[in-house]
């Protein structure tokens, strides 16, 4: 009994110390996560321009979004288009390079470093500046195309190529997915390949019948992360094309940014933020649902 009491007292003491250590986090959650979320939920049903008063308008913001705001529809369409180009290219490139690097190749760490480099610098404004010049009409890429008697192509200043170009520019940063794929490929038991070799199975067939199923959970992870990032694309597009030419790269986050910080319509833009969140949740939710059919978990 005595021992028990002593134990429960140290438990209690550790209790207040634990809360003391957690204090910054608790303040952070309350002030910078929960409170803003509640506020955002309220604002999405309100009309609030930053220097006025907030007034409750019910579902008016959502009605406007779906029935009146033409730019909303444009931005949703363009964002999905961007996602559908960016995500597959990024994943295929990442898996292809990871697969090649996974055979004991000389200089693997140097290759890995170089392929990772774009993921480090890619999302900076400095890199956006560089891309803008490299891909301009007189830029480096068109000079090279000129040597091959091709082009010039207006990569960024023509509405028919701009979004495609930006999606490829995003996919260029496939390094982080590649490193995750490499880790996944390392986990595949070598015996499976040895057995397949004994049976005389072609390498191509081995890739589709052994490698892909065995790394399917890694594919799922990269797919979900890729989707989440792609829906929120902002910096590169804001700096390079700023939505143009002719609104051909006007993605969702640009619409949200302009509504909030140019038009100062905080209520309406909060509603936009929640709709984007729901779009992301629905899409990743569908992916997770479908994953039961194609993701294979090892026991």
């Amino acid at each position: 009994m005595k021992a028990f009491r002593a134990k429960s007292r140290t438990f209690e003491e550790e209790g207040w110390r634990a809360y003391a250590l957690l204090l910054p986090w608790i303040v952070g959650v309350l002030l910078f996560t929960l409170w803003p979320m509640l506020q955002s939920l309220f604002l999405s049903f309100a009309d609030y321009r930053i220097y006025g008063k907030a007034s409750f308008v019910g579902l008016e913001n959502f009605r406007e979004m779906f029935f009146e705001d033409r730019m909303f529809k444009t931005s949703v369409f363009l964002t999905f288009k961007y996602v559908l180009m960016f995500v597959p290219v990024k994943l295929v490139a990442a898996l292809l390079v990871a697969q090649v690097l996974n055979r004991n190749i000389k200089g693997i760490s140097l290759y890995r470093t170089i392929y990772y480099l774009p993921s480090i610098v890619g999302s900076s404004v400095a890199m956006a500046v560089t891309w803008k010049m490299v891909l301009s009409r007189e830029g480096f890429v068109n000079v090279v195309l000129g040597y091959l008697h091709l082009g010039p192509i207006d990569f960024l200043s023509s509405p028919s190529y701009a979004l495609e170009t930006l999606a490829m520019m995003g996919a260029w940063q496939f390094g982080s997915s590649m490193v995750i794929f490499l880790a996944g490929l390392k986990q595949v038991p070598q015996e499976l390949y040895e057995a397949a070799d004994v049976d005389g199975t072609k390498k191509m067939r081995q890739f589709f019948s052994i490698t892909l199923p065995m790394i399917s959970s890694t594919i799922l992870f990269n797919l979900v992360m890729g989707l989440i990032n792609a829906f929120q694309v902002f910096t590169q597009i804001a700096v390079i094309t700023n939505g143009g030419p002719a609104d051909s790269t006007y993605v969702y986050m640009l619409h949200l940014y302009r509504t909030a910080f140019v038009s100062h319509r905080m209520g309406y833009s909060s509603a936009l933020a929640w709709v984007l969140t729901l779009i992301i949740l629905a899409t990743t939710g569908l992916v997770f649902l479908s994953s039961k059919r194609w993701v294979y978990y090892q026991e």
Partner: peptide, 15 residues
Amino acid sequence: LPAQVTLIPKYLTFT
């Protein structure tokens, strides 16, 4: 939690 949900209210709070 996606960052954009708290983007606007955080801005209002910091203002």
